[in-house]
Design a protein around this nucleic acid. Structure first.
Length: 430
RNA sequence: GUCCCCAUCGUCUAGCCUGGUUCAGGACAUCGCCCUUUCACGGCGACGGCGCCAGUUCAAAUCUGGCUGGGGACGCCA
């Protein structure tokens, strides 16, 4: 019976690296029908924070993972001290400077790693290791061994930065006469530049991706693709599907560089799969959460307007910029619109506005019909009228289809904004 | 410095274990064309890679060794 764990330390937020390690563990447990436990490694009382703990738990849940059991190392200090005493009694540890040291003889240690095969250490840098600190709390390597053994974990799936810890831990297993779990060290996730992942290179905590408007399923899907693949060219895989096929042996040995571009693509794929209804609800919630909507914004209006952006957004935060014109009138014409605005079409826009105001059924079909008729009457190519109209309505050169934008905005707003551009040019009679 | 890990397009990867079926397949990005009122979506196409050197073999991306490059660890942090 498989039993695995994810063991975060609440001294910081859940990062993408930790999230992926968690994902692999969770997936393996669910694939095998085993048990997945969460072990909070809060032994550093100074640096551990409740805020971080909540954050980590929230992020894991957000990614749609769950756990069968949860433990806190801070509640198990007595246990670690008992085992340290046992080591003293058996002559494998001793007290010095108020701390307890585990001592060991030099031996060649071999790790039979499930991902990398044999890893051989022919020497170790030291011959003793602190296991209980002066303040009575255990060190990482010790509490980790005690818990992994006592919780009867069958597999320890963790980041490869732990490879150098493993020989020390194995020595402790032996001294304590514990059975060894299987080890699987997964590759690290590198920064976009291929270097070390750190806060200096943009967002790394799961929360930040949530705040940026990435969908949980997309983030999980993308993370899954780093150093693992289903082997059949599929890129879009739900966790439910991954559960069926995930296996440790399919995890690569090579570290993967994180790519925002690819994440954006995956996220856009997930957005594409949502129905318009789901999309609207999702965006509305996001915009409200971001406090973006002006007070009193009609939710029906929000529903009308957000579909415009579904096929263009790669993440919800795109709307914060792109959809601004839908909710605010105080936008200015962008710098890059000058080439369009320098041609004064005040009279023509006035004609357009007059014709549009007569439409009773203000939908995109009627609007387009009238719009094209107006262009023809004015001897203008449709696009010569389209571009300035878009600038008038949105302040931007690029955006959703013009006629659907007009329908979503509603007749009143459209006319108002056309008049605003006419005024900008100095009036239709000037 | 010492120890350890890794090495296929710019990036993520398939292939590598069980050498010939591969003048290496897919995806992201980039570029081009089509669609088109702009951008995006969608469709089509292009560009682009087995780090290097030896060895084994009739045959190596696939096996072996060395080199180089990248990453990690050396805390009474985890």
């Amino acid at each position: 019976m498989v039993k695995v764990r994810f063991a975060p330390s609440p001294t910081g937020y859940l990062h993408i690296g930790g999230a992926r390690t968690c994902l692999f563990n969770w997936l393996y447990a669910r694939h095998t029908g085993g048990t997945f436990i969460l072990r909070i490694e809060d032994t550093d009382l100074q640096r551990s924070k409740q805020e971080y703990l909540e954050e980590i738990l929230e992020s894991i849940k957000w990614l749609e993972m769950d756990w069968d059991e949860i433990y806190y190392q801070s509640k198990r200090f007595d246990l670690y001290r008992d085992y340290a005493q046992k080591l003293i009694a058996s002559g494998n540890a001793y007290q010095k400077d108020g701390a307890i040291f585990f001592k060991y003889e030099f031996t060649s240690i071999e790790i039979d790693d499930l991902i990398r095969g044999k890893i051989v250490f022919t020497e170790l840098p030291k011959n003793e290791e602190v296991i209980i600190k002066k303040d009575g709390t255990p060190t990482y390597n010790f509490s980790c061994v005690i818990d992994d053994a006592l919780m009867q974990l069958t597999h320890v799936i963790r980041g490869e930065d732990h490879i150098p810890n493993t020989p020390k831990q194995i020595l402790m297993y032996r001294a304590l006469e514990f059975d060894l779990p299987r080890f699987a060290h997964v590759p690290l996730i590198l920064s976009e530049e291929g270097g070390r992942m750190s806060k200096r290179y943009g967002a790394t905590s799961i929360r930040e991706y949530k705040e940026e408007g990435y969908l949980a399923q997309a983030v999980a899907n993308y993370l899954l693709l780093l150093s693992w693949s289903p082997g059949d060219n599929r890129e879009i895989i739900s966790l439910a599907e991954a559960k069926n096929i995930f296996d440790i042996k399919d995890i690569n040995k090579t570290a993967a560089a994180f790519s925002v571009d690819k994440l954006n693509w995956v996220n856009a794929e997930y957005i594409g799969k949502k129905s318009m209804e789901e999309w609207s609800v999702m965006v509305a919630e996001y915009l409200r959460h971001k406090d973006f909507l002006p007070a009193g914004t009609d939710s029906e209006y929000v529903k009308k307007v957000v579909p415009l952006f579904k096929s263009r957004a790669s993440k919800l935060s795109d709307l914060l910029d792109w959809a601004r014109f839908c909710f605010y009138d105080n936008y200015s014409y962008g710098e890059d619109t000058q080439d369009i605005l320098q041609r004064n079409l005040a009279k023509e826009i006035q004609v357009l506005a007059d014709r549009l105001s007569l439409i009773t059924q203000f939908d995109k079909t009627e609007i387009e019909k009238e719009f094209r008729a107006a262009a023809e009457a004015l001897h203008l190519k449709a696009k010569d009228l389209v571009h300035p109209t878009r600038v008038a309505l949105t302040g931007k050169k690029v955006g959703p289809g013009l006629f659907e934008t007009m329908e979503a905005l509603g007749k009143e707003r459209v006319i108002e904004r056309l008049n605003r551009l006419i005024k900008y040019w100095g009036g239709a009679n000037g």
